[in-house]
Structures are given as structure tokens and as C-alpha cells.
Simulated scan of single mutants.
Amino acid sequence: MRLDLEAKAFAGHEVLGPLSIRLARGERRAVLGPSGIGKSTLLRILSGLDTDFRGRIGGDERRAVVFQEPVLLPWRDALANVTIPTGCADGVARDWLAQVGLVGHEAKFPRQLSLGQQRRLALARAFAAAPDILLMDEPFASLDAGTAARMLVLTDELLSRSGAGLFLVTHDPAEARTLRAEALYLGGQPARFQPAPPAPDQA
């Protein structure tokens, strides 16, 4: 996956400046920066959801996206929430549901699942699509600390098992470290990749 971005603007206001990204299967990157800097906008460009930018994007890798919210089909059970979007067989969906810890929940609807379980379902759906690159947009936001920690470990395990690459948008450097992702920092107006900010004074 490669992106050579010249600029991205909203209503004439340039939010992203020139930047380049290269990411192959098995590689992991995390983009950090303050709220509103353009991290999610960059992910939408990489996912193909936003095509209104100046620049070039390429690569034939299969990509799947995990959003800030689970974005599930409320009128379908957990199994169908995996098979319908991905087109995978029931057996494949059941295997991924098992890998994320949702055995016995296949017939439940999203409203019958906790938020943590909904996030696990979204993760199973993404991996069932057999992506080469997994794009994740603040996927652990709004989870309590314990649930977020377990989700981070699970995500790391599934990435290693599947061999997929990772492009993570997060505000938390600890998430990038846990997922063993190279940290990239967005800053400035318009935003560009910048050197890592200095560590907090430990004195």
C-alpha cells in the first residue's frame, strides 16, 4: 500500500499537507497526533472511502477497516454480521468468532452484546475478510482500561497469526507500543509527519 499525498482540503481549508506512506503485509504503523489534526481523514484516504484529495494512492493489497464504533448490522445476528459484509463461508465466520472469544454468541444480535463483545465482533469481521492490511481508527476508544488491554493483546495475536499489516490511528502512544507499531506523528497546519515530540520531563 502506498500513498503520495499532495494535499487534502475541506471547504478550501487545507488540513493535510504533503506526506508519503508505504506499508506492506506484516508491517505495522501507528499515526499519532492531537484531536482534529487529520488522523482519521488520512485513514479514510488509505481505505478508499475518501477520494477527494490531490495525490496518488496505489497497491493491490486487500484492506479491511475497524472503525471507532463497531458499525454492525443491528437486524442481523453475530454470524451474519461476519458473513454478509465479507462474503465468507459460515465455517470461516465461526472460526474467527471463536478466535475473538465469541463462541456461543453466534446467534445473538448486536444489542445483546456488550460494547467489548461488539468490538470483538467487528474485529472478527475485519479478519474474516482476509486483509493484507488492517486499518484501525481509534478502535479501543470508550472501552474501560481492562477491556482495552485485552483487546490490544487479542489484536496483536491475530495480526501475528494472520500476517496482516497494520495502520493504526490512535491518540495513545502506549497502544502503538503494545501493538509493536512504528509511530508516525502528525502535526502542523496543514498537518505533515513530524519528528516525535520530546518525552515528558521525568524530573
Rank of each mutant, 00 (worst) to 15 (best):
A78V: 06
R44E: 03
A11G: 12
L179W: 11
M151W: 00
A64I: 05
H13P: 00
L184V: 04
S114R: 13
D201T: 07
Q118H: 03
I84C: 02
T170W: 08
P190I: 13
P190R: 10
D60P: 07
R180N: 14
F10S: 11
P197K: 12
P195Q: 04
R54C: 00
A126R: 04
A98W: 14
Y185Q: 08
R28N: 06
L3G: 08
L46K: 15
A174I: 03
L49E: 15
G36P: 12
Q189M: 00
L123Q: 05
I84K: 11
G101M: 08
F167S: 13
L158G: 10
D60S: 15
V82Q: 08
D50W: 00
V15E: 00
H13R: 10
W96M: 06
H171V: 12
G91M: 02
Q112Y: 00
P198S: 09
L42S: 07
P200I: 08
G104A: 07
L134W: 00
E27G: 07
L134V: 05
A78T: 15
W75L: 13
R63W: 05
Q118A: 11
V71E: 07
A80F: 00
D4G: 04
A199W: 02
Q117E: 15
G58F: 00
S142L: 01
S40N: 12
T83G: 11
L19M: 09
F127Q: 06
F67A: 14
Q194A: 13
H171P: 10
F167H: 15
D50Q: 06
R119M: 13
L73E: 09
P190E: 12
G163N: 07
F140N: 02
E106K: 12
T86Q: 10
R44Y: 00
P85K: 11
P74K: 14
A148Q: 01
L184D: 04
G12L: 03
A24G: 13
L73Y: 15
E175R: 02
W96E: 08
A129G: 12
P18S: 12
F193G: 05
V100I: 05
L115V: 05
R119A: 03
G91P: 01
R44I: 01
R150M: 09
N81Q: 14
P34I: 01
F140Q: 06
M151Q: 09
T83N: 07
R111F: 04
G116F: 00
P85G: 06
R28H: 08
L49M: 07
R177F: 01
L179G: 11
R63L: 13
R76L: 12
L19F: 01
A78D: 08
L159S: 07
A30L: 01
R28M: 03
P139S: 03
P195H: 03
S20F: 00
L166N: 13
R192F: 00
S160N: 06
R180D: 14
R76N: 06
A164C: 09
P110K: 13
A141V: 15
C88L: 04
A124L: 02
G87S: 07
A176I: 09
D77L: 04
P173K: 04
T41A: 14
Q194H: 09
A30C: 03
L72D: 09
R119D: 05
R111Q: 14
A130Q: 15
E175C: 01
G36T: 10
W96P: 09
